[in-house]
């Protein structure tokens, strides 16, 4: 509908050339991230030596650890943006739209990376522990974080008034964040009481080359994460503009109709 009426549609003053989803900065960042990801695959699969204790399973280290760091970072960014939205949003010129977009974009990237962390963690666990899953505090908390933020994203997709939706989403993000330590603590306590074997028994000893590869792949995934959040942010912004203009068009159409009658 929007594209059909595009020719006579005036571009609103807020829309400028900078609005498309890439800029010079993010293009450079995107290529850097892409090249470093390719390099990570080569380093992790070919260059990195086998670990003395865990053998080739250590290659999962370069995926799993950076991926979960990006996920944690994204959720922390979502929580901070949500808190700032609730605290300062009203007094800002844009009514906190910017913070809301940061929170939404971060949360989505965080969910994707948490899913990847859970998958790679399960595969890694299958090789080293013999099982896909262990009920330890960190794993359980990560799984809960994943479903909590899936719920958060569902909340953001609801067809309600944007300001109401943003506020509810921000509160949901903060409640989930407050709750995660409680999950961690209670599971930790539970497993300790049951005297389960610790997971750190045959963890790889990270030394020399492995350490550099881990560092490199962390940088690669962090760059990728930032690039993804930046682009997701811009897509959210474009969607908001489309929704606003769709509304304006609908109102204009109503007015025209009324005028004809």
């Amino acid at each position: 509908m929007v594209s059909a009426t595009k020719p006579e549609m005036p571009v609103s003053p807020r829309t400028s050339a900078r609005m498309a989803t890439s800029s010079v900065g993010t293009t450079v960042l995107g290529w850097l991230a892409f090249v470093s990801l390719v390099a990570t695959a080569v380093l992790g699969l070919v260059v990195s030596p086998r670990d003395v204790v865990t053998g080739d399973a250590v290659r999962f280290l370069y995926l799993h650890v950076p991926v979960i760091w990006v996920a944690y970072g994204a959720f922390i960014s979502c929580a901070i943006a949500s808190a700032l939205f609730l605290w300062k949003g009203k007094s800002r010129a844009d009514r906190g739209r910017h913070l809301d977009r940061v929170a939404g974009a971060s949360a989505e990237v965080g969910v994707v990376f948490t899913a990847l962390a859970l998958i790679t963690g399960a595969m890694w666990g299958r090789i080293t522990w013999g099982v896909y899953w262990q009920w330890d505090a960190r794993l359980t908390m990560t799984a809960m974080m994943f479903v909590s933020f899936l719920g958060y994203l569902a909340l953001r997709r609801l067809p309600t008034e944007p300001s109401v939706r943003s506020k509810r989403a921000a509160i949901a993000a903060l409640v989930s964040s407050v709750n995660l330590p409680l999950v961690h603590f209670s599971v930790d306590w539970w497993r300790t009481l049951h005297q389960e074997a610790s997971l750190s028994v045959d963890e790889a000893e990270i030394t020399g080359n492995m350490y550099s590869v881990l560092l490199f792949s962390s940088v690669a995934f962090v760059l990728t994460g930032i690039w993804l959040v930046a682009h997701r942010y811009r897509v959210i912004r474009l969607e908001e503009i489309r929704d606003d203009e769709g509304l304006e068009l609908a109102i204009a159409a109503r007015r025209a109709e009324a005028g004809v009658d």
Partner: peptide
């Protein structure tokens, strides 16, 4: 929506 949002959060209470 309510169960999806609520159940992960009340997991520690259940435990």
């Amino acid at each position: 929506l309510l169960p999806l949002l609520l159940i992960p959060v009340v997991a520690p209470i259940l435990l």
